[in-house]
Simulated scan of single mutants.
Amino acid sequence: MNIKKHIPNSITLLNLFCGCIAMVLVSEKDFEMAFYMVCLGIFFDFFDGFFARLFKVSGPLGLQLDSLADMVTSGVVPGYIMYFLLTNSQHEISSNPWMPFLGFIITLGSCYRLAVFNLDTRQTNSFIGLPTPANALFILSLPLVLKYSDSLFVLEFLTNQWVLLAITLFSASILNAEIPLFSLKIKKFNLKDNALQIVFLFLSFFLLIFFQYLGIPLIIIGYVLLSVVSNIFKLDEKKNR
Protein backbone atom coordinates (compact mmCIF):
# COMPACT_ATOMS: atom_id res chain seq x y z
CA MET A 1 0.00 0.00 0.00
CA ASN A 2 1.40 3.35 -1.09
CA ILE A 3 0.78 5.65 1.89
CA LYS A 4 2.29 8.66 0.11
CA LYS A 5 -0.55 8.88 -2.41
CA HIS A 6 -3.09 9.28 0.42
CA ILE A 7 -1.26 12.10 2.25
CA PRO A 8 -2.31 14.99 -0.08
CA ASN A 9 -5.97 13.87 -0.10
CA SER A 10 -5.93 13.55 3.70
CA ILE A 11 -4.65 17.12 3.96
CA THR A 12 -7.43 18.23 1.58
CA LEU A 13 -9.99 16.58 3.86
CA LEU A 14 -8.52 18.50 6.80
CA ASN A 15 -9.29 21.66 4.82
CA LEU A 16 -12.89 20.47 4.50
CA PHE A 17 -13.02 19.62 8.21
CA CYS A 18 -11.89 23.16 9.06
CA GLY A 19 -14.64 24.50 6.83
CA CYS A 20 -17.25 22.40 8.63
CA ILE A 21 -16.05 23.66 12.01
CA ALA A 22 -16.11 27.24 10.69
CA MET A 23 -19.74 26.76 9.63
CA VAL A 24 -20.70 25.76 13.17
CA LEU A 25 -18.75 28.69 14.62
CA VAL A 26 -20.50 31.13 12.27
CA SER A 27 -23.89 29.75 13.33
CA GLU A 28 -22.83 30.48 16.93
CA LYS A 29 -21.72 33.97 15.83
CA ASP A 30 -18.13 33.27 16.84
CA PHE A 31 -16.79 35.04 13.78
CA GLU A 32 -13.24 35.37 15.06
CA MET A 33 -12.69 31.64 15.58
CA ALA A 34 -14.46 30.97 12.27
CA PHE A 35 -11.93 33.28 10.61
CA TYR A 36 -9.01 31.37 12.11
CA MET A 37 -10.49 28.00 11.13
CA VAL A 38 -10.82 29.20 7.55
CA CYS A 39 -7.19 30.41 7.71
CA LEU A 40 -6.18 26.93 8.87
CA GLY A 41 -8.22 25.40 6.06
CA ILE A 42 -6.46 27.63 3.52
CA PHE A 43 -3.14 26.53 5.03
CA PHE A 44 -4.08 22.91 4.38
CA ASP A 45 -5.32 23.88 0.92
CA PHE A 46 -1.86 25.20 0.06
CA PHE A 47 0.02 22.19 1.35
CA ASP A 48 -2.12 19.46 -0.22
CA GLY A 49 -0.89 20.58 -3.64
CA PHE A 50 2.66 20.97 -2.32
CA PHE A 51 2.78 17.36 -1.10
CA ALA A 52 1.04 16.07 -4.22
CA ARG A 53 3.83 17.58 -6.32
CA LEU A 54 6.51 16.47 -3.86
CA PHE A 55 5.38 12.84 -3.88
CA LYS A 56 4.41 12.98 -7.57
CA VAL A 57 0.92 11.68 -6.87
CA SER A 58 -1.17 14.45 -8.50
CA GLY A 59 -4.32 13.16 -10.11
CA PRO A 60 -7.94 13.94 -11.04
CA LEU A 61 -9.25 12.68 -7.68
CA GLY A 62 -7.12 15.19 -5.79
CA LEU A 63 -8.27 17.99 -8.09
CA GLN A 64 -11.94 17.22 -7.46
CA LEU A 65 -11.46 16.80 -3.70
CA ASP A 66 -9.63 20.11 -3.55
CA SER A 67 -12.49 21.97 -5.22
CA LEU A 68 -15.13 20.28 -3.08
CA ALA A 69 -13.25 21.18 0.11
CA ASP A 70 -12.74 24.77 -1.10
CA MET A 71 -16.45 24.98 -1.87
CA VAL A 72 -17.21 24.66 1.83
CA THR A 73 -14.27 26.50 3.39
CA SER A 74 -13.99 29.32 0.85
CA GLY A 75 -17.48 29.27 -0.67
CA VAL A 76 -20.24 28.39 1.77
CA VAL A 77 -18.64 29.94 4.86
CA PRO A 78 -18.17 33.47 3.39
CA GLY A 79 -21.71 33.36 2.00
CA TYR A 80 -22.96 32.45 5.48
CA ILE A 81 -20.97 35.34 6.98
CA MET A 82 -22.55 37.79 4.54
CA TYR A 83 -25.98 36.37 5.38
CA PHE A 84 -25.40 37.28 9.04
CA LEU A 85 -24.04 40.73 8.18
CA LEU A 86 -27.11 41.48 6.07
CA THR A 87 -29.40 40.12 8.79
CA ASN A 88 -27.90 42.48 11.37
CA SER A 89 -27.46 45.52 9.13
CA GLN A 90 -28.93 48.78 10.42
CA HIS A 91 -30.27 50.19 7.17
CA GLU A 92 -33.09 48.01 5.90
CA ILE A 93 -33.77 48.06 2.16
CA SER A 94 -36.81 45.91 2.51
CA SER A 95 -38.80 44.23 5.25
CA ASN A 96 -38.64 41.06 3.17
CA PRO A 97 -37.08 38.38 5.44
CA TRP A 98 -35.52 36.71 2.40
CA MET A 99 -33.28 39.68 1.63
CA PRO A 100 -30.28 38.48 3.74
CA PHE A 101 -30.15 35.26 1.70
CA LEU A 102 -28.71 37.34 -1.15
CA GLY A 103 -25.43 37.02 0.77
CA PHE A 104 -25.17 33.50 -0.64
CA ILE A 105 -24.57 35.03 -4.07
CA ILE A 106 -20.94 34.84 -2.89
CA THR A 107 -21.33 31.06 -2.57
CA LEU A 108 -22.79 30.81 -6.06
CA GLY A 109 -19.94 32.89 -7.50
CA SER A 110 -17.39 30.73 -5.67
CA CYS A 111 -18.94 27.53 -6.99
CA TYR A 112 -18.85 28.81 -10.57
CA ARG A 113 -15.24 29.96 -10.22
CA LEU A 114 -14.09 26.59 -8.83
CA ALA A 115 -15.77 24.74 -11.69
CA VAL A 116 -14.18 27.04 -14.28
CA PHE A 117 -10.78 26.78 -12.58
CA ASN A 118 -10.80 22.97 -12.96
CA LEU A 119 -11.31 23.32 -16.72
CA ASP A 120 -9.23 26.44 -17.44
CA THR A 121 -5.73 25.50 -18.63
CA ARG A 122 -4.62 29.14 -18.50
CA GLN A 123 -4.44 29.17 -14.69
CA THR A 124 -1.46 26.91 -14.09
CA ASN A 125 1.10 29.60 -13.14
CA SER A 126 -1.20 32.52 -12.30
CA PHE A 127 -4.88 33.24 -11.70
CA ILE A 128 -7.70 34.74 -13.72
CA GLY A 129 -10.14 36.27 -11.28
CA LEU A 130 -9.70 36.37 -7.52
CA PRO A 131 -8.99 32.93 -5.97
CA THR A 132 -11.71 31.72 -3.60
CA PRO A 133 -9.39 31.58 -0.52
CA ALA A 134 -8.46 35.25 -0.96
CA ASN A 135 -12.11 36.18 -1.37
CA ALA A 136 -13.00 34.16 1.75
CA LEU A 137 -10.42 36.05 3.83
CA PHE A 138 -11.81 39.33 2.50
CA ILE A 139 -15.39 38.49 3.53
CA LEU A 140 -14.54 36.83 6.85
CA SER A 141 -12.47 39.84 7.93
CA LEU A 142 -15.49 42.18 7.70
CA PRO A 143 -17.22 41.22 10.99
CA LEU A 144 -13.83 41.43 12.72
CA VAL A 145 -13.27 44.92 11.35
CA LEU A 146 -16.71 45.81 12.73
CA LYS A 147 -15.86 44.32 16.11
CA TYR A 148 -12.50 46.00 16.62
CA SER A 149 -12.76 49.25 14.67
CA ASP A 150 -13.28 52.53 16.55
CA SER A 151 -14.05 54.44 13.38
CA LEU A 152 -17.67 55.61 13.14
CA PHE A 153 -17.34 55.78 9.36
CA VAL A 154 -16.21 52.13 9.12
CA LEU A 155 -19.02 51.02 11.44
CA GLU A 156 -21.68 52.85 9.45
CA PHE A 157 -20.16 51.70 6.15
CA LEU A 158 -20.17 48.00 7.04
CA THR A 159 -23.63 48.01 8.60
CA ASN A 160 -25.27 49.66 5.60
CA GLN A 161 -27.30 47.05 3.72
CA TRP A 162 -26.72 48.78 0.39
CA VAL A 163 -22.96 48.62 0.93
CA LEU A 164 -23.10 44.97 1.99
CA LEU A 165 -25.10 44.05 -1.12
CA ALA A 166 -22.59 45.96 -3.26
CA ILE A 167 -19.72 44.04 -1.61
CA THR A 168 -21.62 40.79 -2.26
CA LEU A 169 -22.02 41.54 -5.96
CA PHE A 170 -18.43 42.78 -6.23
CA SER A 171 -17.19 39.60 -4.55
CA ALA A 172 -19.06 37.28 -6.91
CA SER A 173 -17.95 39.37 -9.91
CA ILE A 174 -14.24 39.63 -9.06
CA LEU A 175 -14.09 35.86 -8.50
CA ASN A 176 -15.03 35.33 -12.14
CA ALA A 177 -13.61 38.47 -13.76
CA GLU A 178 -11.25 38.04 -16.72
CA ILE A 179 -8.47 39.80 -14.84
CA PRO A 180 -5.06 38.06 -14.70
CA LEU A 181 -3.71 38.07 -11.13
CA PHE A 182 -0.12 37.19 -10.26
CA SER A 183 0.70 34.06 -8.29
CA LEU A 184 2.59 34.17 -4.98
CA LYS A 185 4.52 31.03 -5.88
CA ILE A 186 8.27 31.64 -6.12
CA LYS A 187 9.81 29.46 -8.82
CA LYS A 188 13.09 31.27 -9.50
CA PHE A 189 15.16 32.57 -6.62
CA ASN A 190 16.12 35.99 -7.95
CA LEU A 191 14.94 39.53 -7.29
CA LYS A 192 13.95 40.40 -10.86
CA ASP A 193 11.47 37.56 -11.34
CA ASN A 194 9.94 37.97 -7.88
CA ALA A 195 9.89 41.77 -7.48
CA LEU A 196 6.10 41.99 -7.59
CA GLN A 197 5.65 39.22 -5.03
CA ILE A 198 8.22 40.79 -2.70
CA VAL A 199 6.56 44.22 -2.91
CA PHE A 200 3.19 42.62 -2.17
CA LEU A 201 4.51 40.68 0.82
CA PHE A 202 6.10 43.80 2.34
CA LEU A 203 2.91 45.78 1.70
CA SER A 204 0.85 43.04 3.35
CA PHE A 205 3.15 42.97 6.37
CA PHE A 206 2.86 46.72 6.99
CA LEU A 207 -0.91 46.76 6.42
CA LEU A 208 -1.37 44.01 9.01
CA ILE A 209 0.92 45.73 11.52
CA PHE A 210 -0.73 49.15 11.23
CA PHE A 211 -4.35 48.25 10.48
CA GLN A 212 -4.67 44.74 11.98
CA TYR A 213 -7.96 43.16 10.81
CA LEU A 214 -8.74 46.13 8.59
CA GLY A 215 -5.48 45.38 6.82
CA ILE A 216 -6.89 42.09 5.45
CA PRO A 217 -9.47 43.57 3.04
CA LEU A 218 -6.91 46.26 2.15
CA ILE A 219 -4.39 43.53 1.29
CA ILE A 220 -6.88 41.76 -1.00
CA ILE A 221 -7.78 45.03 -2.73
CA GLY A 222 -4.05 45.84 -3.02
CA TYR A 223 -3.44 42.42 -4.57
CA VAL A 224 -5.99 43.10 -7.30
CA LEU A 225 -4.71 46.64 -7.94
CA LEU A 226 -1.06 45.54 -8.12
CA SER A 227 -2.04 42.85 -10.60
CA VAL A 228 -3.92 45.37 -12.77
CA VAL A 229 -0.95 47.78 -12.73
CA SER A 230 1.41 44.92 -13.56
CA ASN A 231 -0.81 43.90 -16.49
CA ILE A 232 -0.76 47.46 -17.83
CA PHE A 233 3.06 47.60 -17.71
CA LYS A 234 3.29 44.24 -19.47
CA LEU A 235 1.00 45.47 -22.25
CA ASP A 236 3.14 48.61 -22.66
CA GLU A 237 6.28 46.50 -22.85
CA LYS A 238 4.75 44.36 -25.61
CA LYS A 239 3.71 47.46 -27.57
CA ASN A 240 7.21 48.95 -27.34
CA ARG A 241 8.95 45.84 -28.65
Rank of each mutant, 00 (worst) to 15 (best):
Met23Ala: 15
Met23Ile: 15
Met23Asn: 11
Val24Ile: 15
Val26Asn: 10
Val26Gln: 10
Val26Trp: 11
Ser27Asn: 13
Ser27Pro: 02
Ser27Cys: 11
Glu28His: 12
Lys29Met: 12
Asp30Cys: 05
Phe31Tyr: 15
Phe31Asp: 03
Glu32Met: 13
Glu32Trp: 07
Glu32His: 07
Met33Cys: 05
Ala34Ser: 13
Ala34Thr: 01
Phe35Cys: 06
Phe35Ser: 05
Tyr36Val: 07
Tyr36Asn: 06
Met37Arg: 02
Met37Asn: 12
Val38Ser: 06
Cys39Ala: 14
Cys39Pro: 03
Cys39Lys: 04
Leu40Ala: 15
Leu40Asp: 04
Gly41Glu: 02
Gly41Trp: 05
Ile42Asp: 04
Phe43Gly: 03
Phe44Ser: 00
Asp45Asn: 03
Asp45Ala: 08
Asp45Leu: 07
Phe47Gly: 03
Phe47Ala: 03
Phe50His: 07
Ala52Ile: 01
Ala52Val: 01
Arg53Gln: 02
Arg53Gly: 01
Arg53Lys: 11
Arg53Ser: 01
Leu54Trp: 04
Leu54Cys: 00
Leu54Thr: 00
Phe55Cys: 00
Lys56Asn: 11
Val57Leu: 01
Val57Ser: 08
Ser58Ala: 10
Gly59Tyr: 05
Gly59Gln: 04
Pro60Asn: 06
Pro60Trp: 03
Leu61Gly: 01
Leu61Asn: 03
Leu63Arg: 08
Leu63Glu: 09
Gln64Tyr: 05
Leu65Glu: 02
Leu65Asp: 00
Leu65His: 01
Leu65Tyr: 08
Ser67Ile: 02
Leu68Lys: 02
Ala69Arg: 00
Ala69Met: 04
Asp70Trp: 09
Asp70His: 07
Asp70Pro: 11
Asp70Met: 08
Val72Gly: 07
Val72Arg: 09
Val72Thr: 12
Thr73Lys: 08
Thr73Ala: 13
Ser74Trp: 03
Ser74Arg: 02
Ser74Ala: 15
Ser74Thr: 11
Gly75Pro: 04
Val77His: 11
Pro78Thr: 08
Pro78Cys: 07
Pro78Tyr: 10
Gly79Lys: 12
Tyr80Arg: 04
Tyr80Met: 15
Tyr80Ala: 13
Met82Gln: 10
Tyr83Asp: 06
Phe84Thr: 06
Leu85His: 09
Leu86Pro: 02
Leu86Gln: 04
Thr87Val: 08
Thr87Met: 12
Asn88Ile: 01
Asn88Glu: 12
Ser89Glu: 05
Ser89Gly: 14
Gln90Val: 07
Gln90Cys: 09
Glu92Thr: 11
Glu92Asn: 11
Ile93Ala: 06
Ile93Cys: 06
Ser94His: 09
Ser94Met: 12
Ser95Lys: 14
Asn96His: 10
Asn96Gly: 08
Pro97Trp: 13
Trp98Cys: 10
Met99Val: 15
Met99Asn: 02
Met99Tyr: 12
Pro100Thr: 05
Pro100Ser: 07
Pro100Leu: 07
Phe101Tyr: 15
Leu102Asp: 03
Gly103Ala: 10
Phe104Trp: 11
Ile105Asn: 04
Ile105Cys: 11
Ile106Phe: 11
Ile106Gly: 07
Ile106Asp: 06
Ile106Val: 15
Thr107Leu: 13
Thr107Met: 14
Thr107Tyr: 13
Thr107Phe: 15
Leu108Asn: 01
Gly109Glu: 03
Ser110Pro: 01
Ser110Val: 06
Cys111Gln: 03
Tyr112Cys: 02
Tyr112Trp: 11
Tyr112Ala: 07
